Amino acid sequence: MNLPARGRSVLVSGASRGLGRAVARAFAANGDRVAVHYGSRAEEARETLASLDGGGHALVSGDLADPEQAARVVAEAAEALGGGAVDVLVNNAAVNLPHPPATTPYEEWVELWQRHVSVNLLGTAYLSRLVAGRMIEAGTPGRIVNIGSRGAFRGEPDHPAYGATKAAVHALGQSLAVALAPHGIAVASVAPGFFSTERVAPRLTGPEAESIRAQSPFGRVATPEEIASAVLWLASPEAEWASGTVLDLNGASYLRT
C-alpha cells in the first residue's frame, strides 16, 4: 500500500505556536487533516487550529513526558482524525531552558536536565513507538519526522541539555529508520539553525540581533515556513529514500563533515 500524497492524518506535537504552527499549516494547506497538540498553551493552540486550511482538524493536549498522557494524545488524535492509524507524526514538542554549567545551581541543573530528557527525548520516543505501532497494526505505511537542531552538532554552551537531547533525537530517528523500514515507515530528522519565532523575537530586535544574523552568510535567519516546507517534503511519498537522514537547515551557518 502506498502512502497518499494528501488527505493524510497528521499529528504535530508542540503545535501551539512557532515552528509547530507553521508545520501544521503546511500540512493543512497540502490537504491533510492535522491534530494540533499542545501542552499548556491552549489559547494559542486554538489560534493555530483556527488558522488551518480545510477541515477535519483537531486539538489534543497532554504532557508528553508522561507515558500515559502520551498514549492518550495519540489515541485521541487517531480517533479525531478518522479512527485509523496516524499517517504522519511530526515530533516538534521540546523545551529549551538556559542552564549554563558554570553558574547554574546543582539542584536546578538536575531538574532542568530531567525536564529536557523527559520532554525532548522520551516524549519523542513515546509518540514514535505509539504511532508506529498503530501503523504496523493497520498494515499502512507512514512517516515520522523529528525536529532536531544544529546545536546537536556545534554544541550549546548555555543550553547543554538541549543540545544533548537533540543529538539523541537524531540518533533515535536513525535507529527507528532501520527498524521500521520493513513496515514501510520512513523516519527522518531536520536540524534547523536559528529561525524566527515569537519566543526569540526579542533577540532579533535586541543588541545581539546583528551577530545572530551574521551566523549565516545569507545575513539572516530562517523563517518557520522554510523549515516546515522541508518537513512536508520528508513526509511525502517521494521522500522514502531519505529515511535515516538528518537534514541540515541552517543557511550554511554550520557545516559538518
Rank of each mutant, 00 (worst) to 15 (best):
M1A: 15
R6D: 13
S9H: 01
V12H: 10
S13E: 03
S13G: 05
G14Q: 07
A15V: 04
L19N: 01
G20Q: 05
A22F: 03
V23E: 09
V23S: 07
A24S: 15
F27N: 04
A35F: 05
H37M: 10
Y38V: 05
G39F: 08
A42Q: 15
A42S: 12
R46Q: 13
E47Y: 01
T48A: 07
L52H: 13
D53Y: 00
G55T: 15
G56E: 10
G56P: 12
G56A: 08
L59R: 06
V60R: 07
V60K: 07
G62D: 03
D66Q: 01
Q69L: 02
A75N: 11
A75K: 11
A77Y: 12
A77G: 15
L81Y: 11
G82P: 09
G82W: 09
G82M: 10
G84K: 12
G84V: 10
A85L: 08
L89W: 08
L89A: 12
V90D: 10
V90C: 11
A94R: 06
P98Y: 12
P98E: 12
A102W: 15
Y106C: 08
E108Y: 08
W109T: 06
W109V: 11
V110S: 12
E111F: 00
L112Q: 15
W113A: 13
Q114K: 14
V119P: 04
L122C: 01
L122Y: 06
G123T: 03
A125F: 10
A125Y: 09
L127T: 07
L127I: 05
S128A: 15
V131F: 11
A132V: 10
G133M: 02
G133F: 07
A138H: 05
S149R: 02
R150K: 10
F153Y: 14
F153Q: 08
P160R: 09
Y162R: 06
V169M: 03
L172M: 15
L176A: 12
A177W: 00
V178S: 06
V178E: 06
V178Q: 11
L180I: 02
A181Q: 14
A181T: 06
H183Q: 02
G184M: 10
I185S: 01
I185G: 02
A186T: 03
A186P: 00
A186D: 03
A188T: 04
A188R: 04
A191L: 04
P192S: 05
F194P: 04
S196E: 14
S196Y: 08
T197C: 07
R199F: 02
V200E: 11
P202A: 04
R203L: 12
T205E: 14
T205S: 11
P207W: 13
A214T: 02
A214P: 09
A222S: 14
E225C: 03
E226I: 04
I227W: 03
I227A: 06
A228N: 05
S229F: 00
A230C: 08
A230D: 01
V231W: 11
V231E: 13
L232D: 08
L234T: 03
S236W: 09
P237V: 03
P237D: 13
E238A: 15
E238Q: 15
E238P: 05
A239C: 07
E240S: 14
E240P: 04
A242K: 01
S243T: 15
T245P: 00
T245E: 02
T245R: 00
L247A: 04
L255V: 13
R256Q: 00
T257D: 01
